[in-house]
Amino acid sequence: MVVSAFDIILCLTLVWLAWHILTSPDHFKAVVLFISFGLLMALAWVRLQAPDVALAEAAIGSGLTGALFLSALRRMASVRRGERRLDRAEERYDDG
């Protein structure tokens, strides 16, 4: 009973999240939602008796891919502004 309540909340949230990731006009918001989706998906894998898949989902699906998306987002922004690619030193200093 209680277990299925947990699962139902988890499933509904996952579907709701997935919908918002796909339809969000703001890319940054979509990336953060994607990271949260990965964390909740890891919970779902745990509930599906697959803790090893949960481990991979948390590490690769959420952590690594999330960080890569954040990085890619920055590149996209600088491309859109018509700039050339930033190198490391510039990136560090343009924080201002």
């Binding site: 990271i35 803790p51 481990l55 948390a58 952590g63 999330g66």
Partner: peptide
């Protein structure tokens, strides 16, 4: 162990 990975990952992001 999954919890351990979670603990490390939120900081990474």
């Amino acid at each position: 162990d999954v919890a351990l990975v979670f603990a490390l990952l939120s900081a990474l992001a």
